[in-house]
Simulated assay, not measured.
Amino acid sequence: MNLHIQLFAGLVDLFGTTKLVVSLDQESITVAELKLKLTQDYPTASSLVATCFFAKNQAYAGDQDTLSASDEIALIPPVSGGQPSLYEITDTEIDITAVTSKVNHPNHGASLAFIGTTREMTFGQRTVLLEYEAYRPMALKMMATIGEEIASKWPGTLCAITHRLGRVDIAEASVVIAVSSPHRAACYDASRYAIERLKQIVPIWKKEIWEDGSEWKGSQTGPWNPLETPLTEY
């Protein structure tokens, strides 16, 4: 059986076609099974696919609805004003629950939230607050790249990143990275990969402000080279 799936908007750019053909041995498949197959067969598209809904014969279909070759099938990405992006930059306090909810998946048995907060004491020096600045459009693009890399390294794994800019006071969150995966090992590894890769390639800068001065902080783990290949130790 061949299913012909119509694609729209960003899905066309991602898959490079307006119609995706999926070959199956069986005569029918549930929506949930088809979505899982797409995330496994196209790991770099899994983050966006996870936010989409299927339409069957021009009506939204539930996870348990079955699809066959005779059906008119479409994969519908979030419409304007719908689900928020997996990758966001904000000037206000981060809603941690909202970020983690983006990676909820019925077939995932593990999820983690990494929360980076402003630390008061660093090597004996007292920080008053941090200030963040970013090259916004490129930062968002690089966050999406991290999600694609994670989906490729750990197929089926989802990642959402929100970073705050401006003033971030002591104990407040500057970044939240949510990851979910079918199994916990991939979830742990992908979470650590995401924060290390974020520091490597995302153009966001941190200014530490102390009681007696301030300093812009760059890479603190060795020479900075954003063109280096993705991390491989995970």
Score class of each variant (00 low, 15 high):
142 M>Q: 12
67 L>K: 10
66 T>I: 11
216 W>M: 01
198 L>N: 01
117 T>H: 09
179 V>N: 01
205 W>Q: 03
217 K>N: 12
185 A>H: 12
60 Y>D: 09
13 D>V: 14
162 T>V: 15
97 T>I: 05
225 N>F: 11
197 R>S: 07
41 D>A: 00
183 H>Y: 06
27 E>K: 05
192 R>V: 05
207 K>G: 00
88 E>R: 04
61 A>H: 09
104 N>V: 04
183 H>M: 07
129 L>A: 08
80 S>C: 14
168 V>E: 04
29 I>G: 05
207 K>C: 03
129 L>E: 14
49 V>Q: 14
14 L>S: 13
223 P>G: 05
103 V>I: 11
106 P>C: 13
96 I>E: 12
70 S>M: 07
218 G>D: 03
133 E>D: 05
35 K>L: 09
65 D>Y: 10
21 V>Q: 13
20 L>Q: 08
215 E>N: 06
138 M>C: 15
17 T>S: 08
173 A>P: 01
216 W>E: 01
36 L>Y: 07
53 F>D: 07
190 A>M: 02
166 G>H: 08
160 A>Q: 00
219 S>G: 03
75 L>Y: 11
194 A>S: 06
164 R>S: 13
193 Y>E: 03
88 E>C: 15
176 V>D: 00
28 S>A: 01
175 V>F: 04
13 D>W: 01
195 I>W: 06
14 L>E: 12
39 T>A: 12
41 D>F: 06
104 N>H: 11
62 G>S: 14
166 G>W: 12
5 I>E: 13
198 L>S: 05
98 A>S: 12
143 M>W: 03
30 T>A: 02
134 A>M: 14
98 A>L: 07
33 E>H: 10
159 C>F: 07
42 Y>M: 11
128 V>G: 00
150 I>K: 05
169 D>Q: 14
173 A>D: 06
191 S>L: 02
44 T>G: 13
213 G>K: 03
59 A>F: 08
80 S>H: 10
163 H>M: 10
28 S>D: 03
14 L>N: 06
104 N>W: 09
156 G>N: 08
33 E>Y: 09
96 I>D: 14
202 V>Q: 00
188 Y>M: 01
89 I>Y: 02
87 Y>F: 13
203 P>I: 13
93 E>I: 14
3 L>T: 10
2 N>Y: 10
102 K>S: 12
55 A>T: 07
46 S>M: 04
98 A>P: 07
204 I>A: 00
126 R>K: 15
25 D>Q: 15
216 W>Q: 05
133 E>N: 01
177 I>W: 00
36 L>P: 01
52 C>T: 07
70 S>K: 06
2 N>I: 13
3 L>G: 11
56 K>H: 09
110 A>Q: 08
65 D>G: 15
53 F>T: 05
